[in-house]
């Protein structure tokens, strides 16, 4: 397989990581917590989408919308139940609570759904481009024939739609402007008459909607199981920190860097070590925190 094909896979992976990373980084910037249970929101969204598409059954676009609504509802309910009451305690208790919540939800899903993977039935069209000439450098083929499936296009298209709507929301609406103000300085925002709890709630809903979408896209692309979201949480986190924690635009760039790094490391590593590609994402994360802790566009995270 040529490097071009790997790049396409990388962009697709980057796309759904980006959607999730935006939600993750908004929670980080405005609620001021690292939400380790965020992966479970993706899993729950994917299950809502799967149930809607297979049990009811509804057409796929409707299932995706239901997954987004489900994600938003789940997110605000969990936030009201577990995170809002301890909002004043600071980042570490909130992080630990989210770790506990993540374990509880993940295993509750396992309890009711078992370990098996489920698939959402989709009709896939594959577009092949075999005429591209090989450009070989050393043992690596830079171009070569490649293919794109309709699923790839749906994932990438959804991601672009999300980027545009988030940009419009943050720059054109009162809620979005209030979110940015709060991310900047919460006390000042309150002085200016912004209802901070309301904004926090809207961030939870927005992050849940994004998680639901990312989860159901992952489910369409691969499958749904109790670990769907958890297996991606460290990539989402790496993308958010790489982009500069709290910055949605940085998170998008970070997500594509992570996606491409994962895809290329699969291409370059020997086949017995492809499992290492996840370690590559964390290695990038650690290097970023050491070299430029503020990320591509963000705030200082060091104390001394």
């Amino acid at each position: 397989m040529g490097l071009l094909q790997e790049a396409i896979f990388g962009v697709v992976t980057g796309s759904y990581i980006a959607i999730a990373a935006i939600g993750f980084t908004l929670i980080y910037g405005i609620v001021n917590m690292i939400n380790f249970a965020y992966g479970e929101y993706l899993t729950l969204g994917a299950f809502v989408g799967f149930l809607a598409a297979s049990a009811i059954p509804v057409p796929l676009p409707v299932a995706v919308v239901l997954a987004m609504i489900g994600g938003g509802v789940i997110s605000i309910v969990l936030a009201r139940g577990f995170f809002t009451p301890i909002n004043h305690t600071g980042p570490v208790p909130m992080l630990l609570t989210s770790i506990g919540l993540g374990i509880a939800i993940r295993n509750a899903i396992r309890l009711f759904g078992g370990r098996s993977a489920r698939y959402i039935e989709t009709e896939t069209a594959t577009f092949r481009f075999d005429g591209v000439p090989d450009v070989t450098v050393g043992s690596v083929d830079l171009l070569g024939g490649f293919f794109v499936t309709s699923e790839h296009l749906i994932v990438f298209g959804s991601a672009v739609a999300v980027f545009l709507s988030i940009h419009a929301l943050l720059t054109r609406t009162d809620v979005g402007i209030a979110m940015r103000a709060m991310g900047d300085d919460e006390s000042l925002a309150r002085v200016r008459g912004i209802d901070t709890q309301l904004i926090r709630d809207s961030v939870w809903v927005l992050a849940g909607v994004l998680a639901g979408l990312a989860g159901v896209l992952m489910a369409i692309q691969t499958n749904v199981s109790s670990t769907t979201g958890f297996s991606h949480i460290l990539q989402i986190l790496s993308a958010a920190i790489l982009g500069g924690a709290g910055s949605p635009y940085g998170a998008i760039i970070g997500a594509y860097v992570i996606g491409l790094a994962l895809a290329f490391s699969t291409a370059f590593l020997p086949s017995s070590m492809t499992g290492l590609s996840s370690a590559v994402a964390f290695a990038i994360l650690i290097v970023v925190l050491l070299v430029k802790p503020s990320g591509i566009a963000g705030t200082e995270v060091r104390e001394a």
């Binding site: 917590m33 570490v92 986190l237 964390f282 994360l285 650690i286």
Partner: peptide
Amino acid sequence: RLRDDFLAIVTLATAEIFHSVFVNF
């Protein structure tokens, strides 16, 4: 020197890297 919650993330990531190194080599 990292802030508390980021130190948590770095140590967690270190553990995951070593885990996959143990599995893959």
